[in-house]
């Protein structure tokens, strides 16, 4: 067994959250630069230019790209030959707390959704999805999820007879209804299959995938491309003010499901699609 100190996990999580909040990925920067070439209206061009400028300022001054520094979401692959010396869950939350305190990041979490709605003041608890895998390392993919776009996300349990057309219709309907609200150009995460909650988790995971990557299955890759084309024909455009770039990418993840269903979850992410991965 390999021993990993809880302290090392805390430090890694802290570093990741400060960094991912201030430094947008190259995949998004490249996509915004491409959008600038494609857009024709002065407004759409100006919005993209301002987003690129915003991200340059954030990187240079190491300040948050967006004031909504989100809820902390982590996908953890925990090697079965690893023993953590200390409390694993506390280490993650302590890393998040220190990142949000020391990184000048906004604390956006309330302790109770309905009654108290009191801010926890340290942006914890984090949302952690842990999977035990074989191996002697811990892999963490972390992101901060803003709720302007999270609020525009939806899930639907389709009948098998709805087929691929049903999937397409639902994804397009969710994006159309979201309109300007989720800060387009967006990244559309789609989770298909599994159970109710698994499809939602897959959709989130899809938004944490580089937009330069496609689904490995040729059929899902084609579906990603077709949906992206149709979404960009809607004309919602940058900041919802009209244009050709409504989405930068459609990322699909899928899983086996029940004979009675096609669960489809659509998790929308804004253009500030912030995530990083690390192996400890």
């Amino acid at each position: 067994m390999r021993v990993i100190k809880a302290q090392d996990i805390k430090d890694a999580v802290k570093k990741m959250f400060i960094s991912l909040n201030c430094n947008i990925g190259d995949d998004i920067t490249n996509a915004l630069n491409n959008a600038l070439k494609i857009e024709q209206s002065a407004t759409a061009k100006s919005v993209i230019e301002q987003l690129l400028e915003n991200n340059r300022i954030a990187k240079k001054e190491q300040i948050a790209i967006c004031q909504d520094t989100g809820m902390a979401v982590l996908f953890v692959e925990y090697g079965d030959k690893v023993v953590v010396d200390g409390d694993f869950s506390d280490a993650i939350n302590q890393g998040v707390k220190e990142a949000y305190d020391e990184g000048f990041l906004r604390k956006s979490v309330v302790c109770d959704p309905v009654f108290d709605r009191k801010n926890t003041s340290d942006n914890t608890p984090a949302v952690v999805h842990t999977k035990i895998v074989s191996g002697d390392v811990i892999r963490i993919t972390a992101g901060c999820k803003g709720f302007g776009s999270e609020n525009m996300s939806k899930i639907k349990m389709l009948s098998p007879s709805a087929g691929v057309e049903g999937v397409k219709d639902f994804v397009l309907e969710v994006v159309r209804q979201a309109g300007p609200n989720p800060c387009p150009p967006i990244v559309v995460g789609v989770g298909i299959g599994g159970t109710f909650e698994q499809s939602a988790q897959l959709a989130k995971k899809a938004t944490f995938r580089s937009i330069d990557d496609s689904n490995a299955d040729e059929r899902y890759k084609k579906l990603e491309e077709e949906l992206l084309l149709k979404i960009n024909e809607m004309g919602i455009g940058p900041a919802g003010l009209g244009g050709k770039t409504t989405a930068l990418s459609v990322n699909i993840e899928y899983a086996p499901t029940h004979i009675a269903s096609i669960p489809v979850a659509v998790n929308i992410c804004c253009h500030a699609c912030r995530h990083q991965s690390i192996e400890i």
Binding site: L51, N54, A64, I65, C183, G240, C270
Partner: peptide, 13 residues
């Protein structure tokens, strides 16, 4: 008025 969502660092200037 609409300001540009996600341009927080720039707007703060």
């Amino acid at each position: 008025f609409a300001a540009i969502g996600g341009a927080a660092a720039l707007i703060s200037k």
